[in-house]
Nucleic acid binder design. Structure first.
Lengths: 150, 150
DNA sequence: TATTGTTATACTCTATAACTATA
DNA sequence: TATAGTTATAGAGTATAACAATA
């Protein structure tokens, strides 16, 4: 893993560009969460998948892939893995035998609880860094960027 | 029973987690910049590489890879491509014949100027979304996350 | 011995297109 | 004809480890 130190490299105006700093902050946060959740054998991407299934039992694969902005074909190998490892249950519906209903197994729920604890710890670290008072405004800005950037 | 439509998906506390919103904001910003810089045939990752070489003529590959937090081996194919396309010049140094000095060619500088214009436009969009008064504090927080998150 | 850069290799994430099975 | 999901395939992007040349 490369170190953060950049020696005497001149970053110029990059330092003051939101787009660049957003990338650096996201990358650092992602890696920190990956370290915390490493013992679960899960990566940050899997967390959102499990979380959304837990929160929306019976969701279809297409709805799930849309919910986190990915193509349905990207989800197939992820779900195959989660099903194979006994964390997710996949059942055909009766009315429409093309779709699956996705739910968590008891093991899946246990794993999600574990990951939730990692995420909470991670987010407490972030909140502490940001400062309690500034968190709501910071979140508001992030949401605005995510939904409104042209 | 109908599947959950994407619009009805319940995101729960994910909505209020900095780590998650950071990911969503970064992804949206990244895609917006990718759209702007698409005509240059460059992706956002290449921009930082060109920018850092332009700003630090003669930089070595190791220093460059550390500067944007990647392993040196990740840089080799990127530089091969940039050299092959005539944007970057790679010359052995005299004193230490292990290292290369990286510089931009005239074409590389032209391309960088083009990308700089995209980046400026992109960042003006971001600044407008955030609100000029809040930009400095927002940047400060992002830098803090990038450098201090455990 | 240590460092610079390359190669071989692999893994994750993502997408598109063609396919199947249903509707 | 349209939709849900799978398969085949490809392309970024990243990493580790072993290596050659040089220090």
């Amino acid at each position: 893993m490369p170190s953060v130190a950049a020696e005497e490299v001149d970053f110029g105006v990059l330092e003051n560009w939101v787009g660049f700093q957003l990338r650096m902050a996201q990358s650092a946060s992602f890696q920190a969460f990956a370290r915390l959740s490493h013992q679960s054998g899960m990566r940050p991407g899997r967390f959102a998948t499990l979380y959304l299934i837990g929160r929306n039992p019976g969701i279809s694969q297409t709805a799930l892939s849309r919910a986190n902005g990915k193509d349905k074909s990207s989800l197939t190998p992820v779900l195959n893995d989660l099903v194979r490892r006994g964390f997710v249950h996949r059942a055909r519906t009766r009315n429409d035998r093309r779709t699956y209903r996705l739910t968590l197994t008891p093991d899946g729920r246990k794993l999600l609880d574990q990951l939730n604890r990692c995420a909470q710890r991670h987010d407490r670290n972030l909140d502490r860094l940001i400062g309690r008072r500034d968190v709501p405004r910071f979140l508001e800005i992030l949401r605005k960027i995510a939904t409104e950037i042209a």
